[in-house]
Simulated scan of single mutants.
Amino acid sequence: MNAAIRSTEELRRDISEIVEGGSPQVSAFAAWVLDNYQEVAFRSLRAAAGAASVNPNSAVRLAKALGYAGYDSFRADIQSALRENFVPYSKRAHALTRRSGADTWESLRKATNANLAAAFSPGMRTLLATCAQELVTARRIYCIGVRSCFSLAHYFTYVGAMAFANIVHTPNEPGGIMDMVSQAGPRDIVIAITYAHYSWEVVRGVTIANECGARVIALTDSMASPVARGAWKVVPLPMAGPHLIPSLAPALSIIELLLAEMVLRAPDAERRVHDFEERIKRFRGYVLSDPTTGR
């Protein structure tokens, strides 16, 4: 029988007891879980055990010691706990007003460094390399994001389209996402970017993409995210910290890393970027085409 859904505090209490009293391997995995809820939420059984340097059986034994039928139900509770922990933006703003300037600065610095370390982890590189390999051979690549995530989607498509003919520019007019994604098919990939609060337009776009048979790469904050369900790949966005909204700086780094991995696999990318630059220079789109001469 599965354990009842636990709150974050209940999970932490119960897991901490196993850290203290479990067998060495199970205790080691339990200790790792306490510091890596997001990793548990996003990773498979084998991937999580590998990241914690324990045998997969130890992960299953932890789940059963906590009263779950298996690892999947344990992971589902972790996902629910993370969803429960969502902090509204207004409360984030309120929390910032209660901090000192020096404390805020230091907390933001530490959180940003930790987020970027996660973005540049070996596991992330492997995941992005897998995505890049399929993206460069896709018929069309669509990237959708609205509100704060529009800038990320726009950056990916604007910069990416310099090097790749199969990238479709992100729409900015009402209804544009549905119009665009409804044209997708099995040879296309839709990159969806959203986090809590999850934007309705992006969630609806992913639903349409799935119905059209396109593969979805979800850049999101949790496996509990509605765009993660049924996605071909889920790219976890490390967004922790006392920011006014969840931090987008690591998400931009991940997009830059993904573009770099794509260029590594595309011999024609250099020529296309060169041709793009020459067109803009020809029509004086840059104020200074050559900063060394001022012309």
Rank of each mutant, 00 (worst) to 15 (best):
residue 83 R to H: 10
residue 7 S to P: 02
residue 164 F to W: 04
residue 106 E to G: 00
residue 227 V to H: 04
residue 43 R to M: 13
residue 59 A to E: 04
residue 232 W to D: 07
residue 239 M to Q: 14
residue 184 A to G: 10
residue 167 I to N: 02
residue 128 L to M: 13
residue 11 L to A: 03
residue 58 S to T: 12
residue 125 R to G: 10
residue 248 L to F: 06
residue 36 N to V: 09
residue 20 E to A: 14
residue 206 V to L: 05
residue 128 L to G: 09
residue 73 S to K: 10
residue 191 I to A: 06
residue 107 S to M: 15
residue 75 R to D: 01
residue 286 Y to G: 00
residue 215 R to I: 04
residue 58 S to N: 11
residue 261 E to D: 11
residue 164 F to P: 02
residue 261 E to W: 04
residue 24 P to W: 09
residue 122 P to W: 07
residue 49 A to C: 13
residue 218 A to R: 08
residue 241 G to E: 05
residue 179 D to G: 06
residue 211 E to K: 14
residue 253 S to Q: 10
residue 76 A to C: 00
residue 25 Q to C: 01
residue 211 E to L: 12
residue 277 E to Q: 13
residue 248 L to N: 12
residue 131 C to M: 05
residue 206 V to G: 03
residue 9 E to Y: 11
residue 259 L to E: 03
residue 279 R to L: 10
residue 260 A to G: 00
residue 12 R to I: 14
residue 192 A to R: 03
residue 110 K to H: 09
residue 237 L to W: 11
residue 33 V to M: 14
residue 172 N to Q: 08
residue 59 A to N: 02
residue 231 A to G: 09
residue 263 V to L: 11
residue 110 K to S: 13
residue 61 R to C: 02
residue 28 A to L: 12
residue 82 L to T: 01
residue 231 A to C: 05
residue 70 G to P: 02
residue 102 A to E: 14
residue 183 Q to C: 14
residue 246 P to L: 06
residue 208 I to N: 02
residue 222 S to C: 09
residue 247 S to Y: 02
residue 114 A to V: 08
residue 150 F to Y: 15
residue 187 R to K: 14
residue 271 R to Q: 15
residue 92 R to P: 05
residue 164 F to G: 03
residue 41 A to L: 05
residue 259 L to T: 03
residue 67 G to N: 05
residue 50 G to P: 02
residue 23 S to E: 14
residue 63 A to G: 08
residue 21 G to T: 15
residue 242 P to A: 10
residue 57 N to R: 13
residue 153 A to W: 00
residue 188 D to Y: 06
residue 6 R to I: 00
residue 189 I to K: 04
residue 88 P to D: 11
residue 153 A to G: 04
residue 134 E to C: 00
residue 153 A to D: 00
residue 91 K to S: 11
residue 71 Y to V: 04
residue 68 Y to R: 11
residue 243 H to V: 01
residue 48 A to Y: 05
residue 255 I to Y: 03
residue 143 C to Y: 01
residue 16 S to L: 12
residue 214 A to H: 04
residue 33 V to C: 13
residue 21 G to E: 10
residue 291 P to L: 13
residue 221 D to R: 07
residue 111 A to H: 10
residue 220 T to I: 06
residue 34 L to R: 07
residue 179 D to L: 09
residue 192 A to Y: 03
residue 279 R to I: 06
residue 148 S to G: 00
residue 258 L to H: 04
residue 79 Q to H: 00
residue 40 V to W: 10
residue 257 L to R: 09
residue 176 G to T: 06
residue 63 A to T: 08
residue 196 A to F: 03
residue 182 S to D: 12
residue 89 Y to M: 13
residue 279 R to H: 05
residue 137 T to G: 00
residue 6 R to M: 14
residue 169 H to G: 01
residue 269 A to E: 04
residue 140 R to Y: 07
residue 220 T to F: 05
residue 31 A to V: 03
residue 248 L to T: 15
residue 55 N to G: 00
residue 115 N to H: 06
residue 279 R to D: 06
residue 188 D to P: 03
residue 221 D to H: 07
residue 251 A to R: 07
residue 277 E to G: 14
residue 184 A to E: 01
residue 79 Q to A: 13
residue 121 S to A: 15
residue 156 F to E: 05
residue 274 H to R: 15
